[in-house]
Design a protein around this nucleic acid. Sequence first.
DNA 1: GCCTTGTATGGTAGCGCTACCATTTGTCTG
DNA 2: CAGACAAATGGTAGCGCTACCATACAAGGC
Lengths: 342, 342
Amino acid sequence: MSKPRSRRGGGRPTLADVARKAGVGAITVSRALREPGRVSEDLRRQIQAAVDELGYVPDPNARALASARAEVFGVLVPSLTNNVFAEVVRGIYDSLSDSPFRIQIGNTHYSGLEEERLLQVFGSQRPAALIVAGIDQTPGARRLLENAGCPVVQVMETGPDPVDMMVGFSHFDGGRTAAGHLLQAGYRKIGFIGARMDPRSQRRLAGYRAAMEAAGLFDPRLITTTPVPSSVTLGRELFRDALAKMPTLDGVFCNNDDIALGVLFECHRASIDVPKQIGIVGFNDLDMMQVSFPSITSVRTHRYEIGTRAVALALAAIAGNPPEQRIVDLGFELMRRESTAR
Amino acid sequence: MSKPRSRRGGGRPTLADVARKAGVGAITVSRALREPGRVSEDLRRQIQAAVDELGYVPDPNARALASARAEVFGVLVPSLTNNVFAEVVRGIYDSLSDSPFRIQIGNTHYSGLEEERLLQVFGSQRPAALIVAGIDQTPGARRLLENAGCPVVQVMETGPDPVDMMVGFSHFDGGRTAAGHLLQAGYRKIGFIGARMDPRSQRRLAGYRAAMEAAGLFDPRLITTTPVPSSVTLGRELFRDALAKMPTLDGVFCNNDDIALGVLFECHRASIDVPKQIGIVGFNDLDMMQVSFPSITSVRTHRYEIGTRAVALALAAIAGNPPEQRIVDLGFELMRRESTAR
DNA sequence: GCCTTGTATGGTAGCGCTACCATTTGTCTG
DNA sequence: CAGACAAATGGTAGCGCTACCATACAAGGC
């Protein structure tokens, strides 16, 4: 005549089972697990023993339903394979691995509408925090973020008007620094090669343009871009296009390192001397930039740190200590290498 | 005298609100949303109108609690930044983007214990399916998978003893094919260079060894490995080590493409002719392999497809149509390029 | 006509947990 | 020592949804 062991549950132990075994009330068990400080040493031990013996694991769904707050971080990135975002996501995972928070990643595929849709989905889960890449949300997405009822961190870049908090750096400055470096190294006909051209790439381009204009050397024909996703192969092709369009090119600032590598390979293939004939600067400073031959100058960005800092900000806000400084600029660092040393 | 609008919920519309507005029972709304076929055309339209008007979004937590089954795919991978897994994950995301299923990713950091811990966490959510990388689970992890009560797909490689289903290919064969190709091209002192050396790398090494032994050319001094995570930089260093150890080396099979690229760059730097003096074969066939100069022969693996097929299998099993063939071998393809054409 | 069978809908009772509000006890004040 | 107050514990009532079991009614079989 065993009690009819809940028809659905599948028989896993519940809070009530633990409470019964430990001889206390269910709420006390709940508290012992969530706020150990509020339960006496004695009971805590007793409860822990019961938990261990039964192999009790709290049901996050029940928890979320009862508390109207899921222990979930929603993370929205435009790509899962782009190393840049993968690094950010890794930083987020590592920072959260010892916390009770789970992570829910959404892939927006660089689409504002998709971002909005995912925000809708994520919102229905009442996440503990939201981390989104970029600052160019659609008005609808922005509204969803503002009404999310949880800390929001926009990552990858900084801007004047955060929804809540921000961690990143200025892509405009990054682009300007890269182009400035080429100018300083004596290059004159400096091209810009970019793929995908998301908002951040656009701002790097704007920075490049500002530097070139300041030097009185800007020419729109120096710019070669495509909306196609970036790849090493594409870098090679775009460089050939650029060269065909402007044979006197003597330098290129590449939107990212994949492109830069493609350019380098094409230079090898076409026997173009780097850095003598062409100077190359990449963006992000992936590992391979320092090993290539010649090594490639690149703008190092702190991607992993963007992830960890974003989590730190969100965690502080969740704990009720919203940071004084809501915008964190992690900057970047120009890594001078052989590809621009002539 | 408005009714005391649930103290917690935050006032978002619920199923009951929709039901009231549509003038039907709550269950009917629930059904209309989940099994439209079981509700009359008429009511369905009425309900949809109410849903739209209220902006109702179902609460996945409540749903999971009530049905003892969350619409979540748990995915366990050893790394988030390794392009190989990123591609698999992308395939999973893309295949699931139009389904009601969410995705929960866990990063095991190549640790069996971490995998076991994450499986425990995931299990508490009663996921709809579990996708895990690799076939070398700890006994504890294996038990958790067997008792997960949901479809399980092991991905990346095939093996004789699936927990449930499997999608991948034989890394042993991949390694043997790569080494065999170098042998066939006339290389003799063929080294193996590998980093990280996870179980799949070990099997590629075993395949390499089998080919070399069959040719009577195996020598343990040809093998250079490290447990350190793979990178282009590391490829360069390991190659230098290998060359120092065995100056007559005339070919290398690299554990993966990062390593191969590092080897190529070092060859450039040391003026070693590829493919004349050294033949290079990589593994995975990343985009850059076909663009590098010289282009690098590599074993192409179908990473994205592994993700999509894994989802297809799981979805079929969820729908009650477990596939006849529980092991799907997606194979691989040797891409012959300049780096081994002498 | 009665009974079966099937289809469309609804009511009730939880799922496992926590918010809110007691209640109990011990300690401190004047 | 009464009263105030804090600390520790517990009971009750949901959170928003779905499983399970009615119920109502139409269609069909004899």
